[in-house]
Amino acid sequence: MLWLKHCEFGPRKDTQECVRASDCPGGRKLVSRSFAYCFPPGAVCCEKSIEEPKAKTCGTVTPIPRIGVGVDSLQCSSPWQVSLRRRIDLNRPISKENSEHICGGTLVDNQWILTSPFCFYFAGAQDPAEQIRDNILIVAGDWNHVLDKEPFRGANPEQEFRVDRWNVHPEFAKGSGVPVNNFIDITILFTQGGEAKYQENAFVLVKLDRPTTFTDCVRPICLPDPSDSSCGSNTCRITGWGHNENEDLKDILQQATMTIFSPDACDAIDYYRLGANAPARPERSTCARNAAGAFPCVGDQGGPLACQGNDGRWTLRGTLLAKLSCDENTPLPVADTAQAADWIKTTIQ
């Protein structure tokens, strides 16, 4: 049970009577004798018992994250970040050693991650003959891809998982006539309508083959309510191991601060930049930008855009969408999780 401080004023009593446990109404307890003395005679300061949320540690971080512009993150400062890895040698079983990082995802429950279809199919099925469950390894608690083991406070934080099943958003690729089952189907979408075709409703929920164990380095992020908006917030960040200026994947998980905009603001920005030639924004998407020019690249897609609330918890506000070019001069398109929150919550229940 979680105890929340709750103070009430009852009938006037002397200070000694005020601090008796019997002065607390049913279902509540006294905070402490010394704490109660901080209030006038007649004040009863109690704590009320409430039910914990299903994932009580969602959105919390044990280390204090260092926010910067395209900088190394602190280990375990984004404990919801996962790495989707693809098997290298298809003739050998998949393992951390026989796999390479492809893209990112976000832990949203003790056994579910959210990523993009582009990321998921590129990692798992680059052609129709490939079996997704054989080719994807999902690693939670990962941070440094160079280190085989990454001790944190004396323990190895990494947890490895396989795919149990997956659910693609029902409106992904709608109207295209293309049943998407592998990455070749994604490329067909692109030939039909460019990047926007695989950026619309771009969500896939992946169930892990077993529940995660919550630790300082592995815990879920909070999900937004459909009405949530972080428009204009600069307490947001993206994370990933995507390509650097030398076209190499980063060894250490990177992070960059972002300002997120509402969908209407994104449309206005595009119109200001491109006028009547501005493309239509993909459905269930919004945009964000880093003022100093940091931007995601290949290997970052599917990862989180997380925003910190006034209560200190982090909420998943977006999933990074794949782009053919890494361009810091345009707003970053992100799949807007608030617009898909009901589907996410229904699927993982």
Rank of each mutant, 00 (worst) to 15 (best):
A21K: 07
D89V: 08
W314L: 12
S116P: 04
F172Q: 09
L249W: 01
L249I: 06
G240T: 00
S233R: 00
D264P: 02
E150L: 02
P224C: 10
A123K: 05
S78F: 08
R153T: 03
T215K: 05
V108D: 05
T239C: 01
N234T: 09
S95A: 15
R87H: 11
W80K: 12
G70N: 04
G312P: 08
C38G: 09
G309W: 07
E160C: 00
L137A: 13
L274P: 00
K250G: 07
E158S: 00
G26L: 11
F161E: 00
L74P: 00
I221F: 07
V334A: 11
P296E: 05
N277E: 14
N310F: 07
L147A: 14
V168W: 07
R317W: 11
P282Q: 08
Q255Y: 02
A196I: 09
A292L: 04
P263R: 09
A288F: 09
H101K: 10
P282A: 13
L74I: 08
S229D: 12
I260C: 05
E47P: 02
N277W: 06
P93S: 14
V178Q: 13
Q16L: 02
I184A: 14
H6V: 05
Y198W: 14
L107S: 07
Y37E: 07
A202Y: 00
V204Y: 00
F295C: 03
C18A: 00
E160A: 03
A173M: 10
L30F: 00
Q16W: 00
K323E: 15
L321G: 12
D225E: 15
P11L: 06
T257L: 12
K345L: 10
I88T: 08
F122M: 10
Y272L: 08
Q255N: 12
T60F: 04
S95V: 13
Q255M: 11
G42H: 01
I88C: 03
G154H: 03
D311R: 15
I138P: 08
L305P: 08
N246E: 06
D327S: 07
D148F: 11
L114T: 05
S262G: 15
I102T: 12
F118Y: 14
V61L: 03
E150R: 03
W166D: 04
C287L: 14
L321D: 13
A129N: 13
S95D: 11
F183T: 03
W314K: 09
W241Y: 03
I238W: 03
Y272W: 04
Q75C: 03
D216K: 04
C103L: 09
P128G: 13
I113C: 10
A21Q: 06
P128K: 11
T346P: 03
H101M: 12
F120G: 01
P25G: 02
F122G: 02
Q126V: 14
Q339N: 10
S32M: 02
P40Y: 06
I50S: 11
V31N: 00
T257F: 06
I138F: 13
N144W: 12
R12P: 00
E150F: 02
Y37N: 08
V334E: 14
E47N: 05
V61F: 01
E160S: 08
P53R: 12
E245Q: 06
D336K: 14
A322C: 02
S229P: 02
S78M: 08
A278K: 02
R33N: 00
T187Q: 15
